[in-house]
Write a protein that binds this DNA or RNA. Structure first.
Lengths: 203, 203
DNA sequence: GCCAAAATAAATGTATACATTTTCAGATGA
DNA sequence: TCATCTGAAAATGTATACATTTATTTTGGC
């Protein structure tokens, strides 16, 4: 496992408080490697939003930023329905079945908060990939990953989780019925509600 | 000037044919540096779409991909009007004046194709930045930069350029008049036409 | 002659050492 | 007292050397 993965895991787990400033040398010693792999990992993590430049020297673990979350959800609300629409004609029973399986997995308790987030993405990703639009998919995936940074810290209320799960089932039904308009609306609302819940939590 | 900038300039100028496979050692010798800065530059350029992984070994200059362009313009059509709408209430005479100046610069001939692309971005960026939405702005900027890769190779027809410029003026007028609906429609059409022209050119 | 497997070559990943840049505490002067 | 300059310490950038992984060629067997 590369240092990049280790560092990302630790960031996702919240082992570095927001605002913490990380130095290459300190990280190298902490993880028992030289500074070269540290530099590589930092470069990648900066691109993914897990770290930000801190002036000319060092990188910082970004603070929580409600405005950033708002932006991300605004974008998701516009891009994900588009991607789903492009996927709709290509959704066959195999893909729909896989989506169903993932939903079933999410209902098996107990399950960690981090796993819920991952499975949630797996569910949508499985549908999105059917569109065979790598570029659009890559951007949507990137936005999801950005959200993970925030979701990782909070444990979603059980109340929210069950509503979210109901929405997943409704969405899947609409897709099965080839009701594009309905599916689009359901997805937009699904994202909107998740975004509002997260922004509310952050303030 | 860092190697990253040098390499990017050369890629933007089309000095590496699409499909070319680049090796770290070869690049290091070509640019007279060690492999460390080469690795850093490659990592960044991969993230920006200027290079793609080539199996387990080496990176490739990506081929032209009409589907990628289509995706990018579909996204831009949905994100840029949103960003402009958020910017509208904050557009003051200073920002509008700067936008006007940039338009004037674009009309000064002669001007290179690369400069037109850059000025075109400056025009929209100047308006977008007024929204003060760094996250949304960053994604839009990224999509623009991706387009540059394609635009760099073609020299736009004069016919298209004059129409595009007329659209810029119409857009600016709508913004000055605080007509959000009109500005949104004009921008969406502006992007749509640019996308269609580019996709048509690529096929 | 063709395929598989070992040996060789080449490319990338990483460690150490050194160069350059940036930071910051403390001295100096107005 | 405050701003600014300066020099040491610290951080990042880069080169070289070595380790590991991946690609290619060669060789042996069928």
């Amino acid at each position: 496992m590369s240092l990049y993965n280790k560092l990302k895991t630790d960031l996702q787990a919240g082992r570095f408080a927001p605002g913490t400033i990380l130095k290459q040398k300190a990280l190298a010693e902490q993880y028992q490697v030289s500074r070269i792999p540290v530099r590589d990992a930092i470069l990648k993590l900066k691109n993914e939003g897990w770290l930000t430049d801190h002036g000319k020297c060092g990188v910082a673990v970004p603070e929580f930023d409600a405005l950033e979350v708002e932006d991300i959800y605004l974008m998701r609300m516009r891009l994900e329905p588009l991607l789903q629409e492009l996927a709709l004609p290509r959704l066959n029973s195999e893909v729909l079945g896989r989506a169903e399986d993932i939903l079933a997995q999410m209902e098996r308790s107990p399950i960690s908060a981090a796993d819920i987030g991952e499975l949630n993405w797996q569910f949508h990703a499985c549908l999105y990939q059917a569109a065979q639009r790598p570029t659009l998919y890559a951007v949507v995936k990137h936005l999801h990953r950005q959200c993970q940074r925030y979701i990782g810290y909070q444990s979603l209320s059980l109340n929210y989780q069950s509503r979210s799960q109901a929405e997943h089932h409704a969405l899947l039904d609409a897709l099965r019925a080839r009701d594009g308009k309905l599916a689009e609306r359901l997805l937009r609302e699904h994202i909107s509600e998740a975004g509002q819940a997260l922004v509310k939590f952050l303030r």
